[in-house]
Amino acid sequence: MNYLAHIFLSGNDDFLKLGNFMADEIKGKSYKTYPQEIQKGILLHRAIDDFTDHHPLVSKGAHRFFEELRHYNSVVIDMIYDHILAKRWNEYSDVELTVFAEEFYLLLENNQHLLPQKISKVVPYMIEHNWLLSYSKLEDLKSILKQMNHKTKHETQLHKGVDIYLAHQADFDLEFTGFFEDIRKFCTSKIKQLNQDL
C-alpha cells in the first residue's frame, strides 16, 4: 500500500492519518517519542504493511512484475494498488478524491512541526504535484515511476510496471477488490485494538 491507501485506511482521525503517513521514517521504538495518537498511526502503518506483505492476492499480483522488475515488484504493486483505489475511489468513499486530497494537504501544512525533517521537506513537492490525485491517471503514475528509476540503487525500468498492469488489468482489479475488502476489515479491528491498548 502506498500513500493514498494508508491515509484512507486511517479513517477519519487526523492524527492517525499523520502517524500513518510519516511512519516509514520512524524506526524501531522511536515512535514512542510522539504523541499517543501519532503513535497509533505509526503502529497502524506497520500493521498494514505486514498484512499486505503476507496477503496471497497481493503476492499473486506482485509476482507478475517479478521477471521484469525483480525485487522492486513490491514497490510497483503498491503504486498500482493506489492507482486502482484512486480510479475506483467513489466506490469506497463519500468524499470526492479532490476534496480528500486537499483536506490532507491542509492537515500536513498545519502540523509541519510534528513531521520528521525528511518528510517535511517532501510535503511542498507532494502538494505542488498533487501526488494523491495523480495516482488516478496512468500517464502520471508512469511519470512518477520513471522519476523513481533515478533513485534506485540499481538500473531499473519501474515504469514498465504500468504496461504489465494493463496487460493483466482485469486480474489486478479483481485481486484488488478481494484484498481491499480484507484489509479494510483488518484496519477497523486494528484501530479498535490500538485505541484499547494505548
Rank of each mutant, 00 (worst) to 15 (best):
A23V: 04
M22K: 09
L194K: 11
N2M: 01
H168D: 04
D50E: 12
T177L: 14
K160V: 01
K118S: 04
E103I: 09
H154F: 13
M1H: 08
Q36P: 02
L43P: 00
K142F: 00
G161P: 06
E67C: 05
T152Y: 04
S93L: 02
N149R: 01
L57S: 10
Y92I: 02
P56W: 12
H150L: 00
D49P: 03
A62D: 04
V75M: 06
V123W: 02
V76Q: 02
Q36M: 13
E96G: 08
P56H: 13
R184T: 12
T188M: 09
L166N: 02
Q39C: 05
Q39K: 06
V123L: 10
L18R: 00
S93F: 06
A5K: 01
I42L: 11
S74P: 00
N110T: 12
E67Y: 03
F180W: 02
S189D: 15
D82R: 05
K118L: 02
V123S: 04
Q196T: 12
D49W: 14
E91S: 15
N73Q: 11
G178K: 07
Y72E: 02
L97T: 11
Q196W: 12
L69T: 07
V162Y: 05
E139C: 04
I48S: 15
G161C: 06
D24W: 14
K160Y: 00
E128K: 14
T52M: 01
P124Q: 08
I164G: 05
E68C: 07
L158V: 01
L16T: 07
C187R: 03
A5H: 03
D13H: 04
S30G: 07
T177Q: 14
Q112D: 13
Y81N: 01
E25C: 08
E139W: 06
H150A: 00
H54V: 08
K142M: 00
D13M: 04
Q169Y: 14
Q117C: 05
Q117A: 10
L132I: 12
K118I: 02
D94L: 12
F65R: 07
V95T: 15
H6V: 03
E91N: 15
E68K: 13
T177W: 02
N73I: 06
T156P: 05
L4P: 10
I26W: 08
E68R: 09
E102Y: 06
I119V: 11
L107T: 07
I84L: 03
I84D: 14
M126E: 02
F100K: 10
I48A: 15
H159K: 09
L97Q: 13
L115G: 02
S74E: 00
Q193P: 03
L85T: 03
L141F: 00
I164W: 12
R184P: 10
D171R: 05
T188R: 15
A170F: 03
L69F: 04
C187N: 11
D163K: 13
K153M: 05
Y31K: 15
S10M: 11
V76H: 03
A86R: 15
D182H: 07
L194R: 14
F180R: 09
D140H: 13
F179E: 05
K190P: 08
F15Q: 14
P116L: 13
G161M: 06
A86F: 14
F104G: 11
N130I: 08
F21N: 08
P35W: 15
D140Q: 08
K118P: 00
S59I: 12
Y125M: 11
